[in-house]
Simulated assay, not measured.
Amino acid sequence: MKVLVTGGAGVVGRALCRELLNRGVCVRVLSLPGDTLVQSLPSGVEIAYGNVADYGSIRPAFDGVDCVFHLAAILLSNDAEAFEKINAGGTRNVVSACQDAGVRRLLYVSSISVTYPVLTPYGASKLAGEAAVKDSGLEWTIVRPTLVIGDGGGVEFRMFADFVCRFPLYPMPGGGAAKKRPVRSVDLVKGIAAAGLARDAVGKTYALAGPEVMTMAEMARRVLRQAGLRHWMVPLPWWLARMLAVFKNRIGGRRVSAEQALAGFLYDAVPDIENAEKDLDYHPEPAL
């Protein structure tokens, strides 16, 4: 069996390549031209270059492939059009390339943020990607990771951990009441691999989360304990948190929009993983 992993040179993508190789699968990676991270890919991985936003550049990579694992996406940006171009438009291009190359099986890595009551531009772009996958006529499976921790992955968690460790008094929007089920990177990768290879997973959507439910405040306390720090949380009302996030963007903190920065503090992400446990033999360990 031969698979194509889009975005395979990223942290989760490289780990997925190793997992698939260990399962006896031949792996081809689609990466951006000039991406030096391909040097870190496991030996035996075939490399193709292209940009999912440019259909013509990616189409040849799909020839001779049995299944596509579509990971390529942007997670953080202050540009809503970039989310639409890469996450939504890029997924539509991947679907078209699968159809034109005769690839029947597609695994799409979405996000738990598509379940939030109010979608950020990122969440909306991932939900649009889900719609394209479901309407494709392919044998599709969708996975929705929660907050990823460990093994070099999880940029959102690393930003959060750096934030609470940096200041003796750290502000917490909403008092950190939002509940999460963070997932270890290693468990997420195993879940993605199993979902893309299992016949029972066709036509299904799985949440890939960890076993523990914790609030953002509890997560901060655990991070600080592991770092050997004694910092104190300052609960921040929502109106003030939003005002400060918007101000930070205006003075140069432009990596992520105020809406996206606050969404994780505002909404719970505690999905049921029973179906993944049953269909994928998915049994994650505590993330912290």
Results as ranks from 00 to 15, higher is better:
residue 255 R to M: 14
residue 59 R to D: 02
residue 76 L to K: 04
residue 92 R to F: 02
residue 87 N to D: 12
residue 73 A to F: 09
residue 159 M to T: 11
residue 148 V to I: 15
residue 113 S to P: 07
residue 90 G to F: 03
residue 34 G to A: 05
residue 252 G to H: 05
residue 135 D to C: 11
residue 145 P to M: 09
residue 269 A to Q: 08
residue 22 N to H: 13
residue 60 P to H: 01
residue 30 L to N: 02
residue 84 E to A: 14
residue 118 V to M: 08
residue 251 I to M: 12
residue 33 P to R: 01
residue 232 W to G: 02
residue 273 I to E: 01
residue 151 D to N: 12
residue 101 A to H: 07
residue 145 P to A: 11
residue 241 A to N: 03
residue 261 A to R: 02
residue 36 T to I: 11
residue 206 Y to K: 02
residue 71 L to M: 09
residue 133 V to P: 09
residue 122 Y to K: 02
residue 117 P to Q: 03
residue 245 A to P: 05
residue 148 V to H: 00
residue 52 V to A: 02
residue 8 G to L: 07
residue 1 M to Q: 08
residue 261 A to E: 02
residue 114 V to F: 10
residue 15 A to V: 02
residue 186 V to A: 13
residue 32 L to Y: 13
residue 274 E to T: 14
residue 237 P to H: 07
residue 5 V to N: 04
residue 213 V to N: 05
residue 179 K to F: 10
residue 130 E to K: 01
residue 170 Y to R: 05
residue 194 A to M: 09
residue 210 G to A: 12
residue 150 G to C: 12
residue 59 R to F: 14
residue 250 R to H: 13
residue 149 I to F: 08
residue 191 G to Y: 10
residue 9 A to I: 04
residue 55 Y to Q: 01
residue 257 S to V: 04
residue 131 A to H: 10
residue 223 V to A: 06
residue 37 L to Y: 06
residue 134 K to A: 13
residue 66 D to L: 04
residue 179 K to M: 15
residue 264 G to D: 01
residue 58 I to G: 00
residue 238 W to L: 01
residue 204 K to Y: 06
residue 281 D to G: 15
residue 79 D to N: 14
residue 75 L to G: 00
residue 193 A to R: 03
residue 19 E to T: 09
residue 180 K to V: 14
residue 165 C to E: 15
residue 256 V to H: 00
residue 277 E to H: 09
residue 75 L to K: 00
residue 112 I to V: 15
residue 146 T to P: 13
residue 153 G to V: 06
residue 245 A to W: 06
residue 102 G to W: 12
residue 38 V to G: 03
residue 230 R to S: 14
residue 133 V to E: 05
residue 176 G to A: 10
residue 133 V to H: 04
residue 222 R to Q: 13
residue 220 A to Q: 05
residue 143 V to M: 08
residue 23 R to Y: 10
residue 256 V to C: 09
residue 193 A to Y: 11
residue 164 V to S: 04
residue 211 P to T: 09
residue 198 A to Y: 07
residue 147 L to M: 15
residue 18 R to W: 07
residue 153 G to R: 02
residue 208 L to Y: 05
residue 158 R to F: 03
residue 165 C to L: 12
residue 233 M to S: 14
residue 221 R to Y: 06
residue 127 L to P: 07
residue 258 A to D: 12
residue 9 A to F: 04
residue 284 P to H: 07
residue 65 V to T: 11
residue 94 V to P: 02
residue 153 G to C: 15
residue 281 D to M: 11
residue 120 T to E: 05
residue 144 R to C: 13
residue 172 M to S: 13
residue 182 P to C: 11
residue 74 I to R: 00
residue 265 F to E: 07
residue 143 V to S: 06
residue 216 M to Y: 08
residue 154 G to K: 01
residue 113 S to K: 05
residue 130 E to F: 12
residue 280 L to W: 01
residue 183 V to G: 06
residue 244 L to A: 14
residue 262 L to R: 03
